[in-house]
Amino acid sequence: MTEYRAVFDAEIAFVNGGGLSARGFRLDVPGPDVGEAAVAELLVRHLGLALVGSVEFPRFEIVAEAHKGSRGVAADASLGTPPGGAGAGTASRLVDLSHPIRAGLVTYPGIPAPSIAPHLTRAASRQVYAPGTEFAIDVITMAGNTGTYLDSPYHRYADGGDLASLELATLVGLPAQVLHLADAAERGIPAEVFFERSAAELAGAAVLLHTGWSRHFGTPEYASGAPYLSEAGARFLIAAGVALVGIDSLNIDDTEGGGGERPAHSLLLAAGVHVVEHLTGLERLPARGARFTAVPPRIEGFGTFPVRAFAELSTPDPGAAG
């Protein structure tokens, strides 16, 4: 059986600056028709690189040559799970990833801020209930795009599934793959940064993009220069079969260019991939091993609504036998 290797020169750039050059590199490949994009992904995984922004090949060819045992990437579905299964000898810790909502909060410029008003005041309720018993019932008026919120397909497409249609299994306890990109030099998040994660890690996962932009939330600075997911990045994640993509930024798309186009929203929601925007606290999560939950109310005919997003971290149980 004929085996094949890629032979190439490569220029690798990182999103946080710097790069690597390779000359005459040889890498085992599965067949003669493998392209540059696939070899770029194999190379990143083979070298164990992180935060890759781009891989270019000034010279590239596939040759018939016996494999030399290039290091593969383990497709281990149990990655991040302690021996004996999830929860064995561990305790959990919850990390809140949501911004609090309050009257007057500006989430996105141009979208109305929420207002809160009483329907029944405590004073008025004393006329209704027994002595010593009182209640407050309030009314909140707000846009669905307030605070930390989730987009369903209906947000983008008239015939897409609304909030009431979403399956809980796609919203609760998702394995979280966290990309820490706060020191990236460019606003757009490229597909190459995801090459470090295996197909088994990404399939069914919540991919959370930690850009650090949440530090500006609620200030004028939040509205301009925000990081976003590139179209190529969205296409890569869809092909990988992710369940959800979240970002701690103004928008998952570039709102300052493209003539109003929203490729990340359009592609992800068309593929049934949930989008969560305006996350916070992602710096507190490990790259792998957490579980992510973000559940909106079950509202029919509605596409976007705030969520209480949080992550569950497994930590050693001090009382467990070692």
Results as ranks from 00 to 15, higher is better:
residue 249 S to R: 04
residue 115 S to Q: 10
residue 90 T to M: 09
residue 311 A to Y: 03
residue 229 L to C: 08
residue 148 T to S: 02
residue 321 A to D: 11
residue 97 L to S: 03
residue 77 A to T: 11
residue 81 T to W: 09
residue 233 G to Y: 04
residue 307 V to R: 00
residue 103 A to N: 04
residue 119 H to V: 15
residue 225 G to P: 02
residue 188 G to Q: 12
residue 116 I to R: 09
residue 218 G to D: 00
residue 72 G to T: 13
residue 315 T to D: 12
residue 262 R to W: 12
residue 229 L to T: 01
residue 172 V to G: 04
residue 52 V to P: 07
residue 49 L to D: 01
residue 231 E to K: 05
residue 137 I to T: 11
residue 231 E to C: 04
residue 293 T to H: 03
residue 321 A to T: 12
residue 120 L to W: 08
residue 136 A to S: 15
residue 12 I to R: 01
residue 47 L to F: 06
residue 105 L to D: 00
residue 151 D to Y: 14
residue 147 G to F: 02
residue 76 D to G: 07
residue 178 V to T: 05
residue 319 G to H: 12
residue 67 H to S: 04
residue 152 S to D: 09
residue 108 Y to M: 09
residue 150 L to P: 04
residue 280 T to N: 06
residue 206 A to S: 03
residue 272 G to T: 02
residue 190 P to R: 07
residue 235 R to A: 13
residue 161 G to R: 13
residue 294 A to W: 01
residue 280 T to D: 07
residue 119 H to I: 14
residue 2 T to N: 12
residue 233 G to V: 04
residue 121 T to I: 03
residue 186 E to H: 14
residue 298 R to Y: 13
residue 23 R to G: 09
residue 92 S to E: 13
residue 82 P to Y: 15
residue 77 A to F: 10
residue 113 A to Y: 08
residue 6 A to W: 01
residue 24 G to D: 06
residue 317 D to S: 07
residue 78 S to C: 05
residue 151 D to C: 13
residue 54 S to M: 08
residue 234 A to F: 06
residue 236 F to D: 07
residue 65 E to M: 04
residue 66 A to C: 06
residue 303 G to P: 06
residue 22 A to M: 15
residue 321 A to S: 13
residue 152 S to F: 05
residue 235 R to L: 10
residue 269 L to F: 04
residue 63 V to G: 04
residue 219 T to Y: 05
residue 78 S to A: 14
residue 229 L to R: 01
residue 83 P to S: 12
residue 216 H to C: 08
residue 89 G to A: 10
residue 200 A to P: 06
residue 286 P to R: 07
residue 104 G to Q: 02
residue 267 L to H: 11
residue 238 I to V: 15
residue 144 G to K: 06
residue 136 A to F: 11
residue 11 E to M: 10
residue 298 R to W: 10
residue 305 F to C: 11
residue 101 I to E: 00
residue 177 Q to K: 13
residue 6 A to Y: 07
residue 240 A to Y: 00
residue 12 I to S: 05
residue 112 P to Y: 07
residue 176 A to E: 05
residue 50 A to C: 01
residue 287 A to R: 07
residue 126 R to V: 08
residue 74 A to K: 10
residue 52 V to C: 10
residue 315 T to S: 11
residue 15 V to R: 07
residue 225 G to Q: 10
residue 215 R to A: 15
